[in-house]
Write a protein that binds this DNA or RNA. Structure first.
Length: 283
DNA sequence: TGCCAGGCCTTCC
DNA sequence: GGAAGGCATGGC
């Protein structure tokens, strides 16, 4: 099996894969992760400024990896720009330089973030993995078996109760309804992905189980809308503390307006740095 | 035991 | 359009 070797800079594999944006990567040894993406399984190791990658599928491997990890995006410029926002952002980025947005599959991200509502990351991972194990295509790497996240078509006969058995809880009916809409054509992800952000957001909000926070995560992590600033309980907490004098009465709307005004088009990546740091206790 | 987790839906005003 | 309550489930 051929190993792909790529030079990177302003890239940190650990921060990128452990910042909560993805649910299907596992660290098997320090700086080495195995994960399943859209159509293949990858083993990725970072050693300094080099990535070493093997996959069960070598076709277009470099292209797929570059796109998934955003390797062609100028993160040097992005980081140098965002640390000028203010001292708090600068402090956060100093702990998590190299954190990048992934470009994930739209459908998988949609379902994963429906599952994320009022949930915790380990359990989200468990549910997504279980849905994949039951209904996804089997692939193998290094004599180990993995499962791709299923397509909507592969899920077309799955019942509400069967989703419940995957550990998704009350979100079972939302997943069922979403899959059904995709299969009957009333929801077309490729089409809505072409829409301008405010209209795309509206379309996502029409999906059962998708509210403002989930819609924002989907747009940021799988639709390339880098200005989006999702506000979950962690981000709400840290924003209140850093920018609103810990005032309990601060609303999400005020936080969103602050982020839009001060972080602008870099909102998404700043949010990721804040999220990672507040959960680690480093800010 | 009770609270929390990358919130959302329904109901009611 | 905004506030309150319910919601599956596992970890702490």
């Amino acid at each position: 099996m051929k190993e792909l070797k790529l030079d990177v800079s302003y890239f940190n594999l650990k921060y990128t894969l452990e910042c909560g944006q993805c649910f299907r990567w596992k660290e098997i040894e320090p700086n080495t992760y195995i994960g399943v993406i859209k159509d293949r399984v990858l083993k990725v190791r970072q050693d300094g400024n080099t990535l070493y990658i093997i996959s069960n599928k070598e076709e277009n491997l470099e292209e797929v990896v570059r796109k998934y990890f955003g390797l062609d995006k100028d993160y040097e410029a992005i980081e140098k720009r965002i640390i000028l926002s203010d001292e708090k952002v600068k402090e956060a980025v100093s702990h998590t330089s190299g954190l990048r947005h992934l470009n994930q599959d739209f459908f998988e991200t949609l379902i994963s973030y429906i599952i994320s509502a009022n949930n915790n990351i380990p359990r989200i991972s468990k549910s997504v993995n279980e849905i994949s194990r039951r209904y996804g295509t089997k692939v193998s790497l290094d004599n180990q078996e993995y499962y791709l996240f299923p397509t909507a078509k592969q899920l077309k006969d799955v019942t509400v109760d069967e989703y419940r058995d995957c550990g998704v809880g009350f979100r079972d009916k939302y997943i069922y309804d979403t899959v059904k809409r995709i299969n009957d054509g009333t929801l077309n992800l490729e089409e809505i992905n072409k829409l301008e952000t405010p209209i795309l957001r509206k379309e996502l909000l029409n999906i059962m189980g998708v509210g403002p926070k989930v819609a924002d995560c989907i747009m940021l992590f799988s639709c390339g809308r880098q200005e989006i600033f999702p506000i979950d309980v962690w981000v709400e907490r840290i924003m209140k503390r850093l920018y609103f004098n810990n005032d309990e009465k601060t609303t999400k709307k005020q936080i969103a307006e602050y982020a839009d005004k001060h972080f602008g088009k870099d909102g998404g990546i700043i949010q990721q740095h804040l999220f990672y740091n507040v959960r680690e206790g480093t800010i």
